[in-house]
Simulated assay, not measured.
Amino acid sequence: MTPLDSERDPHAVAEHGVAEHGVAEHGVVEHDVEQVTPTELNAWRRGFTPQAEIWNGRLAMLGLSVGLSVLLVARLASH
Rank of each mutant, 00 (worst) to 15 (best):
H79A: 11
M61N: 12
A24G: 09
A77Q: 06
V29Q: 05
V13C: 07
P10V: 04
E20A: 15
E30Q: 08
V13Y: 01
R8G: 15
H11A: 15
H11R: 14
H21W: 10
W55N: 05
A24P: 00
G17M: 07
E7L: 14
P38Y: 07
I54F: 10
E40L: 00
V73F: 10
L72H: 00
M61L: 15
E53L: 14
V66E: 07
Q35Y: 12
R75A: 09
H16M: 13
E34G: 02
T39S: 15
T37N: 02
T37D: 04
A19K: 15
H31Y: 03
E30F: 02
E53R: 13
L41Y: 03
G57S: 10
S69L: 15
G57N: 12
S69I: 02
M1R: 06
L41W: 09
R46E: 04
H26M: 00
G63S: 13
Q35N: 03
R45N: 08
T2H: 09
Q51A: 09
V36I: 13
A43Y: 13
A74F: 04
H21Q: 13
V73L: 12
L59H: 10
G57F: 01
L72A: 13
W44T: 05
S65E: 06
R75Y: 03
G47R: 12
N56S: 12
L59C: 03
A77D: 04
A12L: 15
V66N: 03
H21I: 04
A77C: 05
G57C: 03
E7K: 14
D9N: 15
G47A: 09
P10C: 06
A24F: 09
G22H: 05
A19H: 14
D9M: 06
T39C: 06
T2R: 13
G22P: 05
G47W: 08
H26Q: 05
V13N: 04
V23F: 07
H21A: 13
T2N: 08
S6H: 07
L62H: 05
A43G: 04
E20L: 15
A12T: 03
T49Y: 09
A77Y: 06
V70Q: 02
A12R: 14
G27C: 00
N56H: 11
H21F: 08
T49L: 08
E15K: 14
W44Q: 10
A52P: 01
V29S: 09
L76G: 09
I54V: 14
W55Y: 11
A24T: 15
S6C: 12
L62T: 09
R45K: 15
S69T: 13
E34Y: 03
S69V: 04
S69C: 12
A52N: 13
E25I: 04
A12C: 02
H16L: 14
V66P: 02
Q35T: 09
V18P: 02
